[in-house]
Every structure is written in structure tokens, then in C-alpha cells.
Design a protein around this nucleic acid. Structure first.
Lengths: 209, 209
DNA sequence: ACCTGAACACCGTTCAAGT
DNA sequence: ACCTGAACACCGTTCAAGT
């Protein structure tokens, strides 16, 4: 038996390179794969395969896997901030605006569970130095704080430290969101019923005495 | 140079086997390693090394890595249930008992962050079939539901569906716990300040009208 | 600048074999 | 019953080389 000559693969012609925004495509494909199989099973090799690109191509755009996940988290916080801000603005910045924000928050989590998991999955530790990551997260939080300051000035929310009030509210909607995407709400998978109930109770909790 | 004879390792004598409860030791070491380096970096090989045991020894006690993590999560829910139940009983089952429960909840999370991360880290999906896991989780939740029923009967909590009230409370303390162990509370790393504030506001939210 | 394949160190898991 | 080392398929990452 003649020893088989190793197949000399022709290099990929330049016009088949992934032109266009590979960075963008990598983030999108990452989100899609997490959505489908969970962040636990995400592999860089699969991402490359799905994009028709070598498994090391992504190192041109991200220093490592953590950095890629960091980009997903950062994008998540940006999308969340925009969603919250729009809800607040579009519903008149008062009580209805506040309720719309809470609904937008849980709505964001259940429609973007992959982003949400990465945002709060403990990757934060690795991203603690990532100032852009922190800035995006703070941006989203500040929308909430500002809405509470506004409502205090309008006389419909009690005069506690607005940052403390915001943390309290955040804890509540975040908890609802987590329970929903963890599938722990059975007959209310998107957490809408629980969220409506919580919003009503939260209003009572923060109302001016 | 004479080729070095491969070292023929003597089998470990039987009296050096890990007698005693290896299963127990595996779970404890897993918790310790997660505590130290995060669940992300946990490897079965390291666990074996630390216990002076082959890296495949654990397959005598767990079917795979997921099963080992499942055991950690189950243990976490058991410990949490006991902590909640004790707090409730020991403080007289009324308003003080309820507050003690909330403090015990966040206290459990910040002193057992490894357990807590595994309990709510999305491993739940893999454990969805694990009926023991579900049972333990429900057990902890039921302590909270029961405490609300008791408080309704005592006339100090509003007459809403107690399950809904329990989910609302749970979302709040769970959110506080997550923020604390994610290190997002800066000057209040154990979440005690936020938790005290939240407990007071929650009381206002669920009080009988 | 952007992309490639080969190579490296590492991981979870299987399995025949040892006591 | 309990434990072992060797082997397998896979993974993230590095790097010299190609266009």
C-alpha cells in the first residue's frame, strides 16, 4: 500500500474571506448558539464552523473567549438601557412610564435570555476591569435611578435615597426575570403575571407615605 | 544515552485507598474549589489531585460532572431550607420571624456563594429531570409560602394568593443575594444594608390594607 | 490587515485491569 | 466494591506562514 500523500489543501482564495463585519457576525453567532444550547456548551470551534471561517479567525477581533462573552454582555446592557429609556420616555415619565420600564425589563430578559445570562452569569468577575462593561451596566442602572428622582420630585415616591430605592426595585425585577428564564414559573413562562403583581406591590412599597 | 525505562508505578496499596466517605469528600472539595476559583474553572482532575485520588475515582459516585454539580445544588437547597425554617421557628413565626428569614436567606447566599451559584446558575436546566433536586428546591420555597399563609391567618398580611406573594418576596431577596455575591454592592458587600431597607419596604408592600 | 493549518497543553469520559 | 493508568475525542490558544 502506497502511503497516502497528505492532502495539500489549497489556501482559501482571498475573495472567499469573510469580508464585511466579522466581529459583528461573531457576536451574533455567539448569541444564537447560547440561545440554542446554553453558554455551558459554547465552543469557539463551532462558532467558526457556522460562519465558514477558521476556528482561530476570531482572535483577530477578540483576545480570548472571555472577551467575546464580555462583548455579548456589554451589548446586552446597551440594549437594556435603550429599552428602559424608551419605555420611560414614551409613557410620560410618571407612574405609567415606571410600570412600562418594569415590563420592558422583564420583557428584555425573556426575549434575550442569552444576553441576560451572560450579563449576570458571574462573568462580571472577569469583566470587573472592563471599564466599558461597567459603564454600560451603570448606564442602564442610571435610567432607573433618574426615573425615581423624577418621581420623587413629582411627589409620588417617598424621599429615601434614590440609589437605595433603585437597588430595591432592580432586585425585584431582576429576581422575576431570573425565575422566568430559569423556567421556574411553570404556567407563566414569561413572568408577565408575576411581574404585574410585583409592579403593583412595588408601587405600594415606594409610594410617598 | 540509554533510553530511560518507563517508570513502573507500583499500584497504590489497598490501605492507601480513600476509605471513609469519598462521595462526601468530593462534594466538599468541589464547593471549596468553586469558592476559590469560580465554577467556570472547576476541573475534575484538580478535585482528584486535592483528595489524593485518581482523576476517575469520582465516577464510582457520580455519573458525570453535571451530576456532581447537581449534588452541590441539592445540598444547597437543603441547607437553605433548614436555615429558613430555623429562622422562622426561632423568632416566633410572626413579623420578626419573617424578617429573620429574609436575613437568613441573603446570609446563606453570601456565606455559601458556591452553593448559591450552582443552585441558580442555569444548571437547573440539566437538573430539570432530577426529581430530588426539584423536591429540595420546592421544600425551601414551601417554607416561605407557609410563613405567608400563617401571617395571613394572623391578620398581618394581605389576602392575595400566597404563592404569588411568595414569588414576589423570593424575587426580591434573590435579587439582593445575586447583587451581593456578584460584588455589585460596593460598600455593602454582604447586602445587609440593602436587605434591611428591602425588608422594610416589603413589609409595607404585603401588609394587610 | 486578515486569515490559515499545524501544534501544544489541557479537559471529560471510557475501559480493561488490578486489589 | 472500589480504585487505577492508558487511551480517546475534544477544547482554547499560540504561532509561523500565506495572501
Amino acid at each position: 500500500m502506497a502511503r497516502q500523500e497528505p492532502v495539500r489543501r489549497r489556501s482559501k482564495p482571498a475573495d472567499q474571506y469573510h469580508h464585511g463585519d466579522l466581529r459583528r457576525a461573531l457576536v451574533d453567532e455567539t448569541v444564537r448558539l447560547i440561545q440554542a444550547h446554553g453558554v455551558e456548551w459554547l465552543t469557539l470551534r463551532t462558532i467558526g464552523e457556522r460562519l465558514g471561517v477558521s476556528r482561530t479567525a476570531l482572535y483577530r477581533h477578540f483576545s480570548d473567549k472571555q472577551a467575546l462573552l464580555g462583548a455579548v454582555g456589554r451589548e446586552g446592557f446597551r440594549l437594556l438601557r435603550v429599552a428602559l429609556s424608551e419605555a420611560w420616555q414614551r409613557h410620560g415619565k410618571g407612574r405609567p412610564g415606571f410600570e412600562a420600564m418594569a415590563i420592558a425589563y422583564v420583557g428584555f430578559a425573556v426575549t434575550h435570555p442569552a444576553h441576560y445570562r451572560v450579563m449576570f452569569g458571574g462573568f462580571v468577575e472577569s469583566c470587573a476591569k472592563d471599564t466599558e462593561f461597567i459603564a454600560e451596566a451603570n448606564g442602564a442602572f442610571d435610567v432607573l435611578v433618574q426615573s425615581l428622582v423624577d418621581q420623587q420630585q413629582a411627589g409620588i415616591v417617598r424621599q429615601d435615597d434614590p440609589r437605595m430605592l433603585a437597588l430595591f426595585i432592580w432586585a425585584s425585577v431582576h429576581g422575576t426575570a431570573m425565575l422566568a428564564i430559569d423556567g421556574q414559573l411553570g404556567d407563566d413562562p414569561r413572568g408577565e403575571q408575576l411581574n404585574r403583581f410585583a409592579i403593583e406591590r412595588l408601587r405600594a412599597a415606594i409610594a410617598r407615605p
